[in-house]
Design a protein around this nucleic acid. Structure first.
Length: 463
RNA sequence: UCCUCAGUAGCUCAGUGGUAGAGCGUCCGACUGUUAAUCGGAUGGUCGCUGGUUCGAGCCCAGCCUGGGGAGCCA
């Protein structure tokens, strides 16, 4: 059915044109002679006002309540009232789908995000969530645009893996066993299972992305990722989307350069394409949203080494709950001090101690044996903390094997990963970005569960 | 998983041992080119669950459940 999007009508609709409008009623104001509907179709933040003359359409208006789906045939006219440029003078009003006013949960008032989370099937119909999902969409398109313009290939890494690697947290097991039949042998025989061995949902596409980069040079993944951690925070999900570029012939500095250009591009694109939604977040969610965005776009990121960061924290005069000394992993309070208090903008911290980072990160040349570091980098941002984590990968076969053994991994289990170092190995680097954290940072939304349509977290998989 | 705060009407909350409340929503009416409409009236409750203390518990105690915030793990 041909119809006109609300966003087009409000922005560029010409007065006097006939329109077919379809959408959902946000509110109704009914008087004796004339009634008003606010109709929204998600195409933009604003709703459009529909004017209904009671004597001709009053009967139809009676049935139309908040939440109802309607179709309006009418004419776009200049608004007599204040608050909008144009409005639709209705000739016919059709109730497409009724909504019972007494039981429809959304009212024309502000609702708490906690309440809306319980009705995640209806919350996209609110201003806040409409704005979140439009911005999320624009972020996703900007991710692809950024990499595609630079010749990166989008590669599809598996969601089911058998490699017991990465050490990146608890995994969800995947099995074809019927777990409702407890008549299992004393010891599960996974050779009888679907893949012939234990299998899991992926916690990262990085190792496979490295394979692809060793042939295609520059690649990225963008897809769902799963962690079975019992994390109950405003920054964690059990199912989230991750962006992982991987570049051959690239070192850590190139990796950090890419991360910075990447974030600048995403923010610039969203500010250009979603100005109304971003203004909404600035006004209603967090008054730091636009300031954050402009700092990302306009200012170079701060860059310091881990060792410098530790010294900076030690001399900050700030009393931290977790004492600071060389060798600790940076705690949330440390990351936030760096990004929010000291630099007040994103900061890239590089060259972390080897023993707090993953086995695949490239060892730096030893300057001080007591202070062995690896080529890791984290991008820390105000409000969120770690937004991006990346590294230059260890490309030297012997060093990598040694490193794996020292952390208790069996190199034979990673034969294909090591083959990449046996045949045509090159320096390479990449990073991982939690997509929801990006959207969270972009919009100022306080809880990550409110930037994904259907959040999964412990004890919650409704909808 | 740990710490902490909370759970009372559809929503947001008040009620600190003695008859269950307000605003908003909803419904009815009035009024009006309205726009968080306005005005009047009405509607609305397993006080999270279970047990305990007490003459008497929304309130005190214990356990559990659910949610928020913080922490850890991480992206």
């Amino acid at each position: 059915m041909a119809h006109t999007r609300v966003g087009d009508l409000l922005k560029t609709g010409e007065i006097g044109t006939a329109v077919t409008l379809q959408g959902w009623v946000r509110t109704k104001r009914e008087g004796k002679g004339v009634g008003f509907l606010e109709v929204n179709d998600g195409s933009c933040l604003a709703s459009i006002q529909v004017v209904v003359v009671q004597e001709s359409l009053g009967g139809a208006l009676k049935q139309v309540n908040t939440g109802a789906a309607v179709q309006v045939l009418g004419t776009l006219v200049a608004s007599q009232g204040k608050g909008q440029r144009v409005e639709v003078q209705a000739q016919t009003l059709t109730l497409v789908g009724a909504a019972d006013a007494e039981t429809y949960p959304l009212q024309k008032k502000r609702h708490s995000f906690e309440f809306l989370r319980e009705i995640a099937h209806l919350r996209p119909r609110t201003n806040s969530f409409g704005a979140v999902f439009r911005v999320r969409n624009t972020c996703a398109m900007a991710v692809h645009q950024f990499f595609q313009e630079r010749g990166f290939l989008w590669v599809h890494t598996p969601m089911i893996t058998v490699s017991d690697c990465e050490g990146a947290g608890e995994r969800f097991q995947v099995t074809a066993f019927d777990l409702t039949q407890p008549a299992l042998p004393p010891k599960l025989d996974f050779t009888e299972d679907f893949f012939g061995r234990p299998a899991y949902l992926t916690v990262s596409g990085q190792l496979e992305a490295e394979i692809m980069a060793m042939a295609l040079t520059n690649v990225y993944t963008f897809g769902p990722t799963f962690r079975a951690e019992n994390s109950n925070t405003s920054r964690h999900l059990a199912e989230f989307w991750m962006v992982e570029p991987e570049m051959a012939f690239c070192d850590l500095e190139g990796d950090a350069d890419l991360a910075e250009a990447f974030l600048k591009h995403i923010f610039r694109t969203v500010l250009e394409q979603c100005p109304e939604d971003m203004a909404f977040f600035q006004e209603r969610i967090s008054d730091r949203v636009l300031d954050n965005a402009h700092k990302i776009i306009d200012e170079p990121f701060a860059r310091i080494s881990y060792t410098e960061a530790i010294a900076l924290l030690e001399h900050s005069g700030h009393a931290f709950e977790f004492p600071v000394h060389w060798g600790i992993d940076l705690q949330s309070e440390h990351e936030r001090y760096l990004a929010e208090v000291h630099f007040q903008r994103p900061v890239v911290v590089m060259d972390y101690p080897a023993n707090i980072k993953a086995f695949y990160m490239r060892l730096n040349d030893q300057v001080d044996p007591q202070r062995q570091t690896v080529r890791a980098m984290d991008v820390l941002v105000p409000g969120i903390g770690e937004l991006i984590g990346g590294s230059q990968r260890e490309e030297r076969l012997e060093v990598l094997e040694q490193r794996m053994r020292s952390v208790g991994l069996n190199p034979e289990d990673y034969w294909w990963y090591l083959d990449l170092r046996r045949f045509g190995s090159v320096p390479h680097a990449g990073f991982g970005l939690g997509f929801e954290r990006l959207v969270q940072f972009m919009t100022g939304m306080g809880n990550i569960r409110d930037v994904i349509p259907f959040p999964r977290y412990p004890q919650n998989a409704e909808f």
